[in-house]
Write a protein that binds this DNA or RNA. Sequence first.
DNA 1: ATTCGGACGGCC
DNA 2: GCCGTCCGAATT
Length: 620
Amino acid sequence: MLVDSRVPHLARTFTYSVPDRLSPRVTPGVRVRVRLAGQLVEGYVLTDVTGDGTPDYNGPVSALDSVVSAVPVLNPEVLALCRQVAHHYAGSVSDVLRLAVPPRVAGAEQGWQFAEPLSVPDPPARGLAAHPFVKAAAQGSPVRACWAAAPGGDWADELAAAAAAVAAAGRGALLVVPDGRDLAAVAAAARRVAGPAVAVLRSEDPPRERYTQFLAVLSGRARIVVGTRAAAFAPLADLGLVAVWDDGDTSLAEQRAPYPHAREVLALRAHREPCALLIAGFARSPEAQRWVDAGWIDVIDDTALLRERRPQTFATADRVRSPFDLARRLPQSAVAALRTGLASGPVLVQVPRTGYLPVTACQECRELAECPHCGGPLAQAADGTVTCRRCDSHDAFRCQHCGHDRLRAVRTGSRRTAEELGRMFPGVPVIQSTGDHPVGSVDDRPAVVVSTPGVEPVAVGGYAAGALLDAQEELWRIGMRAREEAVRRWFNAAALLRAGAPLAISADSEDPAVQALIRWDPAVAARAELAAREAAALPPAQQVAQLDGAPADLAEIVAGLPSDTEVLGPREITQTTSRLLLRAPDFPALRDHLRTVVLARSAAHSGASVRVQVDPVTLD
DNA sequence: ATTCGGACGGCC
DNA sequence: GCCGTCCGAATT
């Protein structure tokens, strides 16, 4: 059996005997309780003891203590996938299994049994579902593609139809999306075409609902699974298609060790099964671009449709001088576009920051305003209140450099922008959507919709115009994914506009990120981004491992690294924790070395634990 | 001689 | 992780 333990070197197989009283319920994949080193721990019964286990263990064995549940929640295919994911990310199988198998809720198991798959009718043969890729997937071919979805709001229906086409041919289809909002759209679309054959795996759902949906998949009844990142491990049989939507969204990376990304999990899964893999989105991630360049995946882009549906994007070169003056953030050409749009419907204004004035500086010396207690950035509210965004302290501002007491805006938030747009378009309703108060949709009446990225309301019939504010600033932000993230947010907002609607973007029109949007060719930005990563030897061009831990522990690990390892850092991240970045010409060898070191240190109780992250989703 | 505690190795 | 064992130091 496989012990489920958070202790790295104990998360492996152990041999136990099965007492007669338990034998009827002990089948592969069931959860059991055993006594290990005197205490009761849980684990899974295995089919065979290969892999990281102890196949030739011949010592004394003790008996299983009890069977937790007779439901075989871990099937061999999912276990094999979890093992591979654990290996890829230098983590433990137990950690991955915790993502793959939701916590048990006994009440939800009543009457559970394996069942016949529910049938799914053929969807209308048009769009993505009529593409050769989907036809091949439905026939069981392990085709791979990157799909550039067209703006216009039917992406969820397209994905659902593709899944239904595969399910109608008797194969499973798995769609993974970044968040609850996208999930709601895809789940609704899937239910329209496949009814009860759809299971929804949402990590934020209450435990009972999660487990119920999981069991519906496990039973074999559900043939289409839509879900958030952990759904990538769903025990769906006879897979024909796995797909991920908007794979550049960082929420597709798991927050818990070993931090697997749903795109990578699905890619590994598609290869294992084998089945078709679809990377879908408006924008294209550098990871997807790398696979395209390598010839590993095809591109599906209906260029005529993209051209027909795209907004008419124009860059406004005017640079920000005084953000207090919206006219400077929003040049005349952009205002004119919004004004024209308001004659026929709602317009969308994307503002990257929330709040009123989220970043401020001294009016006199222009040094960034910093908190006297913690040095954090000072934000100013609409009523003039000054708040530290890091420690939340409220003090009257006094510049630590020159002693003056007046603030000027460095960045303007969505709230202030909404206020200014209200004055600019009197009599037009202003609707604000932010992460704290998201608005799902707006109707087709004229309104100025001010939204932060990722929570843009869908407009019935599409927005009549749009503006992407502070775009150049977003491109200038530090962090490996700053530019990629900016472009992704622009594409996702721009996709909500009507075909041909004017869209103003306040950034350099020559920048490939902006060119990609103007031409609606996400590959333009993705190629430039991948080239930058190649130059900097960063993921996905070069795999890296990030180590967080006490300086002494890190030093110990560094001393034992293979000689060809490139070590960046250590860099202090908190008072007690430092961070290292490691690269090597033979990364798999480095990764396996790190895994061995973690296991050895855990077994020998030497030093505190060090966190290892392979290809962390965020890097400065 | 006896008790206590911290370190260490093993866990089926 | 926890448990059991071992060994040295403190206590009687």
